[in-house]
């Protein structure tokens, strides 16, 4: 697997949390592409076609994570990329809404570092297996 195969797009507007995720994933050997708005995230997804996308739901700007995941899942180029919600929305219905919108997974903030590493590893591996 080349480095290009191990790209994770993280869309997160809080710089500290971005740093945490970036540092952990970089440590584990992924290339982290960073976006801070849903619009930027969609553009970066098209540009880099990452292995996994971690997407915050509450984002500044016109679109939120729910809008973004719908776009990604309706676009042939990006529909196969697993998108994981990383959110501080803690209500049960928030989680349901996220899954309904097209997210493949849901990480509740504060995220467990172990869970983050495990989820990303599994999803990247799955993609790698698909590619094999």
């Amino acid at each position: 697997m080349t480095m290009a195969d191990r790209q994770v797009l993280v869309v997160e507007d809080n710089p500290t949390n971005m740093k945490l995720v970036r540092d952990v994933l970089t440590h584990d050997g992924y290339t982290v592409i960073e976006g801070t708005t849903a619009e930027a995230g969609i553009a970066l997804a098209h540009e880099h076609l990452p292995q996994v996308i971690l997407l915050d739901i509450q984002l500044p700007g016109q679109m939120d994570g729910l809008d973004a995941v719908k776009r990604l899942k309706h676009d042939e180029r990006t529909m196969a990329i697993p998108v994981v919600a990383v959110t501080a929305l803690a209500m049960t219905q928030d989680k349901q809404r996220a899954l309904d919108a097209g997210f493949d997974g849901y990480l509740e903030k504060p995220i467990s570092i172990d869970a983050l590493r495990e989820v990303v590893r599994l999803l990247v591996d799955r993609r790698s297996d698909d590619g094999d």
Partner: peptide
């Protein structure tokens, strides 16, 4: 408030774990 507090807690717990 729950949302606002969760965001910094994410960093507190996350960096400690790391």
């Amino acid at each position: 408030m729950s949302h606002e507090l969760r965001t910094p807690l994410n960093a507190v717990i996350g960096f400690s774990e790391v």
